[in-house]
């Protein structure tokens, strides 16, 4: 199971902040998340959302496994 974290407004959109999901690639993960929560459809693959795997920004598809943490992050507005 992969630990998924939704940051910023994505957590509101998903209805949750952290959840364990079964997936072996990022592409599969995004499809499963959109299937679970239609309000996420098209969002996670959009250009504005960053995918961060174990604290490393990851573009495109990549294999993921047990104990991996995948966070989805909107554009930053901190400070």
């Amino acid at each position: 199971m992969v630990q998924v974290t939704m940051c910023g407004y994505l957590a509101d959109r998903a209805g949750w902040r952290e959840r364990a999901v079964e997936a072996d690639t990022l592409a599969v993960l995004k499809v499963r998340l959109a299937a679970q929560q239609p309000s996420l459809a098209g969002l996670l693959d959009g250009g504005r959302i960053f995918t961060v795997v174990n604290d490393v920004v990851t573009r495109g598809d990549a294999p993921i496994g047990n104990a991996d943490e995948v966070a989805f992050m909107p554009p930053i507005g901190g400070g």
């Binding site: 940051c7 910023g8 407004y9 909107p74 930053i76 400070g79």
Partner: peptide
């Protein structure tokens, strides 16, 4: 440091007010 923190520090701000809350976009 402040210029970098404002644009690269991974925080997401939500302002709460009388009419509800709004997530802020990058400035």
């Amino acid at each position: 440091l402040m210029d970098q923190l404002k644009t690269r520090a991974p925080f997401w701000k939500k302002e709460g007010g009388e009419a509800g809350s709004v997530w802020l976009e990058p400035n």
